[in-house]
């Protein structure tokens, strides 16, 4: 009953906002050049979704996101585990890592375009720089916070360095990375979109940039909605993946892995 009430209020709120917006546009109170009618936006979204060529753009953004995430995570885990295990190297590199991490990633986009061209890889590179630091810090933390008792136990049971890496350190780091999965995938999306927005010939970010270039506000808003749907779908997939991967933990986030 309570849940139904909340749903009803939510729907009512949506109707009021969109209806008011639509009404404002139709009566001329709101300038349709800056705030196009919701109806027009929905029509544009539907046209795109019905168009087969549109999925090429989705596919490109998706591959940039996935590649950026995988490469960024791979490098982040490797570097994080390495530095987590060698405090000396970590201390030497600390100021450099801080300096690099302090650079706003967006300013790197032109450099990546210069180096890698307008194609896929300049966007992947941007996504990688964003994802890398999230997983890097998480992996390092994961390795540092391995329970010393668990570690001693494994060593007494006869674990050599390679065993420890495979059975203790990487799983410990992996559980932290999984808990930051959402943040880092979000960063991968941001990297891909911004890269496209700043210079590309395809992708969702490119669609928005192109509409903007034509002073087509309907296209910009439609692009934003498509992006929101894109991220929501990815979120749903992540929910599923998380449940599959962390079977050994009571509830994600409830208990810190040892």
């Amino acid at each position: 009953m309570h849940a139904i009430n909340i749903r009803l209020i939510q729907v009512a709120l949506l109707v009021v906002i969109l209806g008011g917006w639509q009404l404002g546009v139709s009566t001329g109170v709101i300038d349709r050049f800056f705030f196009p009618a919701p109806f027009d936006i929905v029509k544009q979204v539907v046209t795109w979704i019905a168009d087969a060529g549109f999925y090429k753009h989705v596919g490109i953004t998706l591959s940039e996101t996935v590649l950026g995430y995988l490469i960024g995570t791979g490098l982040g885990v490797a570097a994080g585990v390495w530095l987590g295990l060698s405090p000396f190297v970590a201390r030497v590199l600390d100021p450099f890592i801080k300096a690099v991490n302090a650079i706003p990633r967006v300013v790197l986009a032109p450099i990546f375009v210069l180096w890698l061209g307008l194609g896929l890889w300049s966007k992947v590179a941007l996504a990688v720089t964003l994802v890398f630091f999230v997983t890097f810090f998480n992996a390092m933390q994961g390795v540092k916070e391995v329970n010393p008792v668990v570690l001693s136990n494994a060593r007494i049971l006869g674990a050599k360095r390679a065993h420890l890496l495979r059975h203790v350190y990487f799983p410990a780091a992996a559980s932290w990375i999984l808990s930051s999965l959402r943040t880092s995938v979000g960063f991968a999306v941001v990297g891909a979109i911004i890269g496209e927005y700043l210079g590309a010939s395809a992708g969702l970010g490119y669609l928005i940039a192109r509409s903007e270039g034509n002073f087509d506000a309907v296209g910009v808003f439609a692009g934003i909605i498509i992006l929101a749907i894109f991220v929501l779908v990815i979120d749903l997939i992540l929910d599923f993946v998380e449940k599959k991967l962390i079977t050994w933990r009571p509830n994600a986030g409830e208990e810190r892995p040892a």
């Binding site: 008792v149 001693s152 007494i156």
Partner: peptide
């Protein structure tokens, strides 16, 4: 570190994963 011993710890020493 010795490998010919068995050590029963006070705390949980099992690998949770």
């Amino acid at each position: 570190v010795q490998n010919n011993i068995g050590y029963l710890f006070q705390q949980d020493a099992l690998l949770p994963w």
